[in-house]
């Protein structure tokens, strides 16, 4: 009697476990670049920038837009490192990139100016679970902390495309008189079959609110806002 009563319970448990395992393996993916040596990946890049300064009623606004072409040629893949030749406008840089996005060398780019890149953590990615990397960037006489948070937000199983959300922040010192924020937000659609990004969009937002304080009197003086949006779309791969 006891055996009969327990059977449906264990069966249900086993089925649930199977479903969970299957669903888990279906949604968890490994995010990495799988580029083809000798190929050139071409992207159309649309960049928009807006700088705005306000002082009381006076407001100054400078929007800008530029469309350019970005070409990435995979020169070699050795010791799990891609050697990339990246050309955009009049800039040509050489970057040594691991499949997880980590840049290990940037010959030709001055060290202090090399961007802080986001990388994909090794292993399977679970949807909605953010991966964080952080660093310390020099600023003035000291340094400030910065971090990237990468989240696998969705998977298109039919087209084998993963959507990756990215958000970044630089922890700028702030007080009651001068407050500043610098953060970034964006997404990338990575084709898991070809191993290259099909589309990537990100926006960097900066704001500084500058005030003056004397004893208990605080007066706002200037507000400076800047946004930089970049949108990259894969237009071709040759050969």
């Amino acid at each position: 009697m006891l055996r009969i009563a327990r059977f449906p319970f264990f069966s249900l448990l086993a089925v649930l476990a199977l479903v969970c395992t299957l669903s888990g393996s279906a949604s968890a993916v490994t995010l990495s670049y799988k580029l083809k040596v000798g190929s050139t990946y071409t992207y159309e890049v649309i960049q928009r920038a807006k700088s705005e300064a306000t002082s009381n009623d006076v407001r100054s606004l400078h929007p800008m837009e530029r469309t350019s072409r970005l070409e990435i040629t995979v020169l070699a893949f050795r010791d799990s490192v891609y050697v990339l030749d990246i050309s955009s406008g009049d800039r040509r840089v050489r970057r040594y990139l691991r499949p997880n996005g980590m840049v290990i060398a940037t010959p030709g780019e001055p060290g202090p100016m090399v961007p802080f890149f986001a990388t994909f953590a090794e292993g399977d990615w679970q949807p909605g679970k953010p991966q964080t990397i952080s660093t310390s960037l020099p600023s003035g006489k000291g340094s400030v902390n910065a971090r990237w948070e990468t989240t696998f937000t969705g998977l298109d199983t039919t087209q084998k495309k993963a959507t990756i959300g990215i958000s970044g922040e630089v922890m700028l010192p702030t007080d009651r008189v001068i407050s500043r924020t610098l953060n970034a937000k964006g997404t990338m659609i990575l084709n898991l079959e070809t191993g290259c990004p099909e589309r990537a969009d990100w926006t960097i937002s900066y704001e500084m609110n500058y005030a003056n304080k004397e004893i208990a009197v605080i007066r706002d003086l200037w507000l400076v806002r800047e946004t930089h949006s970049t949108s990259c779309r894969l237009t071709g791969v040759k050969p």
Binding site: R91, L97, P115, W148, V170, G186, H228, T230
Partner: peptide, 16 residues
């Protein structure tokens, strides 16, 4: 600092 986070993806190195 803004320039340092202007390229989140090392692969997509467009001129800021």
């Amino acid at each position: 600092l803004s320039d340092r986070i202007s390229e989140p993806f090392g692969l997509l190195g467009a001129v800021p």
